[in-house]
Design a protein around this nucleic acid. Structure first.
Lengths: 249, 249
DNA sequence: GGACTTTTGTGCGCTAACGTCCATAAGTAC
DNA sequence: GTACTTATGGACGTTAGCGCACAAAAGTCC
């Protein structure tokens, strides 16, 4: 079964008990998300909640002058659209597809309905929300204290953890946009990493060659968030160092 | 009735319907919080949820080298301890008393119990959590893009909104700690604001003289968060520009 | 009123990241 | 293969904020 046809490739959906799963899946539809697509616009009503399977979504805060910064990344471990069950309906953040692929979506009212059963779904969604909160908080500290290169490494690792291979399709321009930094800054950092043999890249295609080194060059933020995710969402730990290393053999 | 004896000075508690209020208040106790007191340590179990009445709590992310940054401020519009109902139990953040005063606290299990009724309390707490998420996200962008002075202004405004007067007790050293910047940087920014007649201060006592100017000098982040709080928590809007101005007459 | 602590002020040199501008290279269309 | 677009590389000068070291006030204690 491919990602496109199997919602259970999303870890939140996979962990639901049968009853909740049946109710929810009846109202679920597959969608293809293209790179760059905007799923939610800041402040706009959100008709659907999205459960990525092999796509990655970036949550960005955008300012009036156009400057922006990514505050969280969502892959198949999570969902996009917490405002729908948290009660606000909208958020001031934008959700952009960072890596194209599949997702499943559920209409707001069905999700809310199931959420209000106060059962397994609720518990899972709230836990995920807490994980997301951690990611956001750590991003805030990271923005304050760490170098562009460290943040770039962190970002690579987080993206990598949500992708099937050690390769990643993304121009430096887009990465700069995510991180809220200058494109040239990313070019320099990437250049250094390439010279060091940690990654290799060309025209929007980055390959991670030496993940352990990448983790060393990253700030602690990556690891803090990874561990907190593992604690909060024990049913689907993101790749550990060991399992990630295996992928590169 | 003073803040110390009236839990309803906390807006979340005040908005609860009678039934939920009765159940919860039976398990509530007043506490005095002293400036600098650490309510929660990062990763430590949280036995209580705190509802500030006239105190202010800072949520900080602390890194292994001791560097830190405030990711949110909580006053009488909110509560400290979302991890208790979100399911994680702990968070990687530290909660420190930024302005001494009163609060009420409820034992974790009672709050969780009431939360699981899926009633008014749940709705209120989740909405507040979303507001907190907004604040955190905006803080992250702010850390990335805005100047120390702008952030200082934002911080002053946010603190002010949670205090009864236009005065604030806090050394520049502590403010620097909150913002995750150098103390000297705060000194300079504060000096400029004082020269401009926007604030006046001496030895840990800051008075805001010209709030409108302060709002102009702040980045948009303050206003974005304020409005989102007003939208999500309509029962207790933080002071508007108008009402805040009145206080200075 | 003198010794101390706490808080604020100031003056360095230093560096990471910025804004800008332009050059190269690698793909893409025809 | 030539023209075009997109992606990356490199080179400016500029600046905000850092780390450090120390001076000057402003309170506090005795």
């Amino acid at each position: 079964m491919t990602a496109a046809t199997n919602p259970k490739r999303n870890e939140l959906l996979a962990t639901l008990p049968a009853a909740a799963w049946v109710r929810l899946s009846a109202n679920m539809e597959p969608v293809e998300l293209r790179l760059g697509e905007v799923i939610y616009e800041s402040g706009a009503p959100q008709p659907y909640v999205y459960f990525p399977t092999d796509s990655i979504i970036s949550l960005l805060f955008v300012m009036t002058n156009g400057d922006s910064a990514e505050i969280a990344i969502v892959g198949n471990e999570g969902l996009v659209g917490i405002a729908l069950f948290m009660g606000g309906g909208t958020t001031p953040s934008r959700a952009v597809v960072q890596s194209g692929g599949s997702a499943f979506r559920v209409k707001a009212k069905y999700l809310r309905n199931e959420f209000e059963h106060a059962g397994a779904l609720q518990e899972v969604l709230l836990r995920y929300t807490q994980a997301l909160v951690t990611q956001m908080g750590q991003t805030a500290v990271c923005n304050r204290h760490h170098s562009l290169e460290q943040q770039f490494c962190r970002w690579l690792l987080m993206s990598l953890d949500r992708l099937p291979s050690n390769e990643l399709s993304m121009t430096q321009e887009l990465i700069a946009n995510m991180l809220g930094v200058r494109r040239e800054g990313v070019t320099e950092a990437a250049g250094r990493l390439q010279n060091a043999g940690v990654i290799s890249y060309s025209r929007g295609r980055i390959t991670v060659l030496d993940r352990p080194r990448l983790e060393k060059l990253s700030c602690e933020c990556y690891e803090v968030v990874r561990q907190e995710f593992a604690r909060l969402l024990p049913w689907a730990p993101l790749p550990t160092k060991a399992s990630a290393a295996q992928r590169h053999r």
